[in-house]
């Protein structure tokens, strides 16, 4: 064989990879005063910046973590609510769009390094839904896995590399964002409260017609023993425990149309039972159908943000749960907010 074809493939690769890298670099960075600065929603980088900041000394911090479904939790209201009971805590809403435990696992060390007083974790059935790649990953390996060995070796090498490759992580997401190809609205991938300007994400309450035709995914949920997100979730809880950071879990509220179309709500209950059995000292509170019929929904999954008199109930309830946890004698939770127990399932 002469090398002309192989050389052509190599040249094609270099050209296309250069175009890709340059395109993504220009998408993520902009030139300001002679230096390249991050200009887009590269969430992992932004999280690193956030967690590595110097928090005020002796500040008591509450971290709210979860997906975009917790963005409606207003940290200012919650801070006010806590203060009424003499609990001076600063609340940070660290919700990240499309977050699932497997993804959150990547930043758990950063979260721990910021030394929060409490972590409040919002979960729903979506957190344990199948991701498309999991079919071959769900299997238990009895023999050493070459993939894991390579990952374990390569991961730290890349993490310690002086170059930041994050901008190359998901070209598809960036491309779809650029061309407006994301289903529904192609909005934020970072919690506006922390990582962006709040005003630009102030969406209105949806009317019934919109909620009826809203297309929300219902991915199937892999069984408990094969569910990688459940395994990651438990690792997160265990890591927080090891570092003596208390955790409160709450079940994210769902809209009525979504609840009616859920293939099998009981599957999610099995997960809650499993978690409550394994971590009996971690309280779980359910807001599952608490606001299902309220006129507070931006779509089938998200409570609207920043609509003062309507959605405050969500922030108030979470503040009550935290207050009850920190100072059980100051506030009594109503019956519908009581802790999830195994038999509830």
């Amino acid at each position: 064989m002469n090398q002309s074809v192989a050389l052509a493939v190599l040249v094609a690769f270099i050209i296309s990879f250069s175009i890709l890298s340059l395109g993504l670099f220009l998408y993520h960075y902009k030139l300001e005063d002679g230096t390249w600065v991050l200009s887009s929603d590269n969430i992992l980088v932004k999280q690193r910046v956030f967690f590595s900041q110097k928090f005020p000394a002796n500040q008591e911090k509450i971290f709210l973590i979860g997906s975009s479904q917790i963005w409606a939790l207003n940290t200012i209201y919650m801070h006010e609510d806590l203060l009424k009971n003499n609990l001076n805590y600063t609340v940070y809403n660290l919700g990240v769009a499309l977050d699932v435990p497997k993804v959150r696992m990547k930043t758990i060390d950063l979260i721990i390094s910021a030394k929060p007083t409490i972590v409040v974790y919002g979960i729903s059935d979506r957190d344990f839904a199948t991701d498309s790649s999991s079919s071959d990953e769900s299997q238990v390996n009895l023999l050493p896995s070459p993939h894991d060995i390579i990952q374990n070796w390569l991961g730290p090498q890349l993490a310690n590399s002086p170059f930041d490759f994050n901008f190359l992580q998901s070209p598809k997401l960036n491309f779809l964002t650029m061309v407006g190809g994301l289903p529904g609205d192609n909005r934020f991938y970072a919690n506006p409260d922390i990582y962006a300007t709040l005003e630009q994400y102030n969406f209105p309450i949806a009317n019934n017609t919109k909620l009826q035709i809203d297309y929300a995914n219902f991915e199937s949920i892999l069984p408990l023993e094969k569910n990688e997100n459940l395994i990651a979730f438990k690792k997160i809880i265990s890591k927080l425990h090891e570092n003596k950071i208390p955790v409160i879990i709450f079940v994210i509220p769902q809209e009525r149309h979504r609840l009616e179309h859920l293939p099998d709500p009981n599957v999610f209950n099995l997960f809650l039972n499993n978690i409550s059995q394994e971590y009996p000292d971690v309280p779980i509170y359910s807001l599952w159908d608490r606001y299902a019929d309220m006129n507070i929904w931006e779509d089938r999954r998200h409570v609207v943000m920043n609509a003062k008199n309507t959605t405050r109930v969500y922030s108030d309830d979470i503040a009550k749960i935290i207050t009850n946890y920190l100072s059980p004698n100051t506030i009594e939770l109503d019956q519908s907010l009581s802790r999830w127990t195994f038999n509830d399932g």
């Binding site: 040249v11 094609a12 296309s16 498309s132 790649s133 070209p171 598809k172 997401l173 491309f175």
Partner: peptide, 21 residues
């Protein structure tokens, strides 16, 4: 080579980091 560059660009921009089975 032009054909390959075109295909590779389309494929690269469709890369998700987490390939679908």
């Amino acid at each position: 080579l032009v054909f390959l560059v075109g295909i590779m660009l389309c494929v690269f921009f469709s890369y998700e980091g987490n390939p679908e089975a």
